[in-house]
């Protein structure tokens, strides 16, 4: 399988890249790690006339925690996310997800930015970003703007990104005491996209009451989905297994899966229910909750 012909550019700055995108509107695509784009091009399902490789732009790859935010540069490799001590110890949901994206080799090329920008409902990081309340910093011809992750996903492969915009950074609220998250994914085999996967994020007060919750679902709809009712059902409670089970049921109701080779829709809803309950238990434990 051979990609069709295209023109390749490797600009040194974000602005240069935006300039190229603007000049070649409709024909040009950003290339980050290429682990989503190149497979599509090899199958000739995507035929961009120009690729703009952003991997040579300095300072787009970093993981940095400051007083307000965790900042992840768009070009950060998924395996760098997985290897980061900060991520593993303080944002374990992202490490859970990162370890289940594709396979270890793909993760050495694939980037956080590519994973969240691709717009495939099967990508694993978007659900984490929704559950944890991330914002995306994007730069275009008119400068920077930030978009809440939950506003970003419009339809399958359709995002809020304008054609001449580039994602530069993902911003995540800094982890506090009483925060706990988890990502659980069921896959047909390692390296596969999810049958269904669930990201949950809980914040507990000092008494163990849930003060905020986020639940989002991977690959059970046209885009990543929020399970808002499931999340809000937990707020104000010191939850028990019965609450997690109930939240699981609500999450399953929020899912809109289609029957396909990964299984019938009803099954996928069942998996959402099971994984939500289990992920909530794990997140609850990580947040310091005691039952």
């Amino acid at each position: 399988m051979i990609p069709p012909k295209f023109d390749y550019h490797a600009p040194g700055t974000v602005d240069e890249a935006i300039g190229l995108l603007q000049k070649n509107a409709g024909d040009a695509k950003v290339l980050a790690g290429g682990q989503s784009l190149l497979p599509l091009m090899k199958l000739r399902l995507a035929e961009p006339k120009m690729l703009i490789d952003i991997s040579r732009i300095a300072k787009l790859s970093y993981i940095q925690e400051d007083p307000e935010l965790l900042r992840v540069g768009a070009a950060t490799k998924i395996n760098d996310l997985n290897d980061s001590q900060v991520i593993r110890s303080r944002y374990p949901m992202l490490a859970d997800a990162g370890a289940h994206i594709a396979d270890p080799l793909v993760r050495n090329m694939g980037t956080v930015g590519g994973n969240v920008c691709h717009g495939d409902p099967g990508n694993d990081l978007p659900a984490c970003m929704l559950a944890i309340g991330a914002r995306y910093v994007v730069r275009g011809p008119k400068g920077d703007r930030t978009i809440a992750a939950k506003e970003f996903y419009r339809d399958t492969f359709v995002t809020a990104l304008d054609p001449a915009e580039i994602l530069t950074e993902v911003q995540i609220p800094k982890a506090q005491n009483g925060d706990g998250g988890a990502y659980m994914k069921m896959e047909r085999k390692v390296g596969d996209f999810a049958i269904a996967a669930v990201a949950v994020h809980l914040r507990l007060d000092s008494k163990g009451t849930v003060t905020s919750a986020g639940i989002a679902l991977t690959n059970v709809g046209p885009t990543v989905l929020m399970a808002g009712k499931a999340a809000s059902s937990l707020v104000g409670h010191k939850p028990t297994d019965a609450d997690f089970l109930a939240a699981g049921k609500l999450a399953a109701e929020a899912a809109q899966p289609a029957s396909d080779m990964r299984g019938p829709a009803e099954f996928k809803k069942g998996i959402v229910q099971t994984l939500t309950r289990r992920a909530l238990h794990l997140a609850w434990g990580r947040a310091g909750g005691k039952s």
């Binding site: 069921m186 047909r188 049958i195 990964r262 299984g263 019938p264 009803e266 099954f267 069942g270 998996i271 099971t274």
Partner: peptide, 16 residues
């Protein structure tokens, strides 16, 4: 034997 086949059986028998 895909998980969905087993799940379906368990579901039909009220096991999950």
């Amino acid at each position: 034997i895909y998980p969905w086949k087993v799940w379906q059986i368990l579901h039909d028998k009220g096991q999950n």
